[in-house]
Amino acid sequence: TTTITTTNEEDARRIATEWKNKGYTVHVEKRGTTFRIEVR
């Protein structure tokens, strides 16, 4: 599992989409101002 964190919502969406397009399972969680993107 790879975890990526960013405070930028646009980055979070872009990163999540990129990983999904590669065939990975992506889970995005917002904690306060931080977005945690888990890639499996």
Rank of each mutant, 00 (worst) to 15 (best):
T1Y: 14
T1P: 10
T1L: 13
T2G: 06
T2R: 14
T3M: 11
T3F: 14
T3K: 05
I4K: 03
I4R: 03
I4A: 03
I4E: 03
T5Q: 08
T5K: 06
T5F: 15
T5S: 07
T6Y: 04
T6H: 03
T6C: 09
T7M: 10
T7N: 13
T7F: 11
T7D: 15
T7I: 07
T7H: 11
N8E: 06
N8I: 06
N8S: 13
N8Q: 05
N8T: 09
N8L: 05
E9D: 05
E9P: 08
E9R: 08
E9M: 08
E10N: 09
D11G: 04
D11P: 01
D11R: 06
A12V: 05
A12Q: 02
A12T: 04
R13V: 12
R13A: 10
R14T: 06
R14F: 05
I15T: 04
I15W: 06
I15P: 00
I15E: 03
I15R: 02
A16D: 01
A16N: 02
A16Y: 08
T17S: 11
T17F: 11
E18L: 13
E18Q: 08
E18G: 05
W19A: 04
W19E: 01
K20W: 08
K20V: 11
N21A: 12
N21H: 08
N21C: 09
K22H: 05
K22T: 03
G23A: 02
G23D: 02
G23K: 02
G23N: 03
Y24I: 02
Y24R: 03
Y24C: 04
Y24D: 01
T25S: 11
T25I: 14
V26S: 01
H27G: 04
H27K: 12
H27M: 11
H27D: 06
H27Y: 13
V28H: 01
V28N: 01
V28K: 01
V28T: 05
E29Q: 09
E29A: 08
K30L: 11
K30S: 06
K30P: 04
K30T: 06
K30Y: 08
G32R: 03
G32L: 04
T33W: 06
T33Y: 09
T33R: 10
T34W: 13
T34Q: 12
T34E: 14
T34H: 12
F35P: 00
F35E: 01
F35D: 00
F35V: 04
R36A: 11
R36S: 10
R36V: 15
R36M: 15
I37K: 00
I37S: 00
I37N: 00
I37E: 00
I37H: 00
E38F: 15
E38D: 07
E38G: 04
V39S: 02
V39W: 04
R40I: 14
R40M: 13
R40P: 04
